[in-house]
């Protein structure tokens, strides 16, 4: 998938770019309104990641322009403002999602993939990881075609893991993905720890492999590759 990231902070831009490229995407970057408009005119992108405050313009104007051209393109707003007004306004003029800075790159990745799936396959596409099959629309997971019995949060954990496979997911990123970012969750890390143990067991019972690896004490990785 082809992604254009419009963001005026070059460091952040580079981070996002390299993260998305490691995921196998083609990622272009634009640090200004002007360069962004130029690139959108030339190449067909699947996904646009737009910062609202740009040095020479407003990200919302880019969205308006794009929607005027009726380009069928997925749009995710990233903003440090965390303003409800901006969010509602952004979604009204045609953006698909809104992320507040600072966000976890894994979260951005998950949102981009979900959006892409909705756009390109009308959401009907299943996600596979070896013997694991995920049906995002019905919240079902199958291991070797046997359905897993899961709570909503357990589904969310595995889904989040699989779309960020081979990636380090910190406990904080997982907690924020599960519960949102405005609450303080001291117990959530313990909870994640226990639930991952349960999930390992559940996957194992259905003949699945143990893909969940602890990475030091900061987080986890869902991978079939060896990590030492």
């Amino acid at each position: 998938m082809k992604v254009l990231v419009i963001e005026d902070n070059l460091e952040l831009l580079q981070d996002i770019k390299s993260f998305l490229e490691e995921e196998g995407n083609i990622c272009e970057i634009a640090p200004t309104y002007k360069s962004a408009m130029g690139k959108i005119g030339f190449f067909p992108y699947d996904i646009l990641v737009v910062d609202i405050t740009l040095p020479d313009g407003n990200g919302l104007d880019i969205i308006r322009e794009v929607k005027k051209e009726n380009i069928d393109i997925g749009i995710i707003i990233i903003s440090a403002k965390n303003s409800v007004g901006d969010k509602i306004h952004g979604l009204e003029i045609g953006a698909d999602d809104y992320l507040t800075k600072p966000f976890y790159l894994a979260e951005l990745n998950a949102r981009i993939k979900a959006l892409y799936r909705r756009k390109a396959y009308q959401g009907s596409r299943e996600i596979y990881f070896n013997e694991i099959k995920i049906k995002p629309d019905s919240y079902e997971i199958f291991i070797n075609d046997k359905p897993m019995n899961l709570t909503k949060k357990e589904f969310d954990i595995i889904h989040f893991f699989v779309v960020n496979k081979h990636r380090l997911l910190t406990k904080e990123a997982i907690a924020e993905h599960l519960w949102g970012d405005h609450i303080e969750m001291a117990d959530s890390y313990k909870f994640i720890y226990t639930h991952l143990a349960n999930l390992r067991k559940k996957i194992g019972e259905l003949g699945g492999k143990n893909y969940i690896q602890s990475i030091y004490s900061v987080g986890y990785k869902f991978t079939d590759q060896e990590w030492t």
Binding site: N9, E11, L12, D15, F19, A80, K81, T100, K101, P102, F103, Y104, L105, R167, L168, T170, I215, Y216, V218, G219
Partner: peptide
């Protein structure tokens, strides 16, 4: 408000380091 972008960068770099 202004610390959020630098913090995002620090955090991304640190995750990178941890990987």
């Amino acid at each position: 408000h202004e610390i959020q972008t630098p913090l995002a960068i620090i955090r991304n770099k640190v995750v990178h380091l941890l990987e």
